[in-house]
Design a protein around this nucleic acid. Structure first.
Lengths: 247, 247
DNA sequence: AAGTGGTCTAGACCACAGT
DNA sequence: CTGTGGTCTAGACCACTTC
């Protein structure tokens, strides 16, 4: 990374800066290496700190950098692929899945979820919090919404609190025969609670995976999973798991 | 939308501002309606324009707003679902697909694509540009990389230029029996050429869908599709197409 | 306490769309 | 031409981590 000034070009400075930095990352830095601080970098390239930050933001969005307040900016490892959407349909909480079940409470589902669950909007549902770890890092957090009608056997033990109840809900859910599932992926920004779980700041870019589980001709449950967009690449393997894309 | 000042709270101003604006969008604005300009809004909330812009950026990222230089900021319609990953594997360019074939040229594939195509990196491949329209808007642009070995019948007509050659490549590709496909989804930012196709500025957030097509035991083609993250929700329907999530 | 990234300000000028 | 959003500056202070 030289000390060259950014030349006057029609393309925005931060854009040019981004490509310069990107090339430098490829050629002159190792994964995990810490970059000079923002004030230093801005001075070196002869731009205001805000402009430099605009370039860094883009690079972080692309998964090239990781910035942590109070620590510094480091070169991020390549995104790892996290498997989503197995070939065979499966309920959440199958024996082999990568999720860790957390608390469960009764809530009124948010409007978009209520819409997916059917027109009985407003009635409270079980909401199970789950977290997914990969390589020792939290990569996703999920809220699974299960209507009371989907787990009729549950009330007997409903008094159980915390993750015990969450596991009970999943166990009851597995009694149903899964007929299919439907997924959507979209860009979002992390809500405060999700951000805390993912070790990010609120507003961080995330990939929101919404899954609708179908059984007995209706929607038996809806899962809203929030993946860190900076560190994850979602994989949908319709074929045998390929080592090439597993990253 | 009131004229209230943003109160002094521990949470960032732009974050609070975002929620205030978001609520206002729900209750006081219609889809397509044009908001007051940024200087006006900033004054109304008693913040600097940069701070106001930080809130608008988040809302645009979430698909709530649409900003166009020289025009103004409008309330965005809900994201529409675009179908990706059909239940049955299919080659690109199947008779019923939503893509429009464009030019075709010989290029050396970029490094990540070369890696997926196998170790014969560096050899030139056919690269077919395709575009996907929905509701009269461009939602995605794709580059399909096809090794010469996958379409041996082609050389005879290789001289044909433009979209004719693109269609010929697809036609030859269909001769192969598709054994499976593998998809990944990740967040990216639009390169200059993609941005132009998508009617966005360079750096706009996009969802990058990479598909590896498998035939004859190897990778027969790789497609890198770039979807507008602000207007699209990708749908992966493993079940019957549900009207609910189709948007 | 020192150093980092995160937020915020009050300006300025530019590029583009619609007259 | 006017009005819009997009870029950029040179500061200031805050929140957090580390020592």
């Amino acid at each position: 990374m030289g000390t060259t000034q950014v030349e006057a070009v029609p393309e925005p400075k931060y854009w040019h800066l981004k490509t310069v930095l990107s090339d430098a990352l490829d050629s002159e830095f190792e994964v995990g290496e810490i970059l000079p601080n923002e004030r230093e970098l801005a001075a070196r390239f002869g731009v205001a700190r805000a402009t430099l930050r605009q370039a860094l933001e883009q690079l972080e969005l692309e998964g090239r950098l990781q910035r942590r307040r109070g620590v510094g900016t480091t070169v991020a490892p390549p995104r790892f692929g996290v498997d989503v959407g197995p070939a065979e349909d499966s309920w959440p909480g199958a024996p082999d899945d990568a999720w860790q079940t957390g608390d469960c409470e009764d809530v009124e589902p948010p409007a978009p979820v209520a819409r997916l669950l059917g027109d009985d909007a407003g009635s409270p549902v079980h909401s199970v919090r789950r977290t997914r770890m990969t390589h020792g890092q939290p990569v996703a957090t999920e809220l699974l919404y299960v209507p009371h009608a989907s787990v009729p056997g549950l009330p007997a033990i409903e008094a159980a609190g915390g993750s015990a109840r969450g596991r009970a809900v999943l166990r009851e859910l597995h009694r149903l025969e899964l007929e299919g599932q439907e997924r959507t992926v979209e860009l979002g920004s992390a809500r405060a609670d999700d951000a805390r779980q993912l070790d990010r700041l609120p507003g961080a870019p995330v990939l929101v995976v919404t899954t609708r589980y179908l059984a007995r001709g209706t929607t038996a449950a809806v899962a809203v999973a929030t993946y860190r967009a900076d560190t994850c690449r979602l994989t949908f393997g319709d074929a045998q798991p390929g080592a090439l894309m597993a990253g």
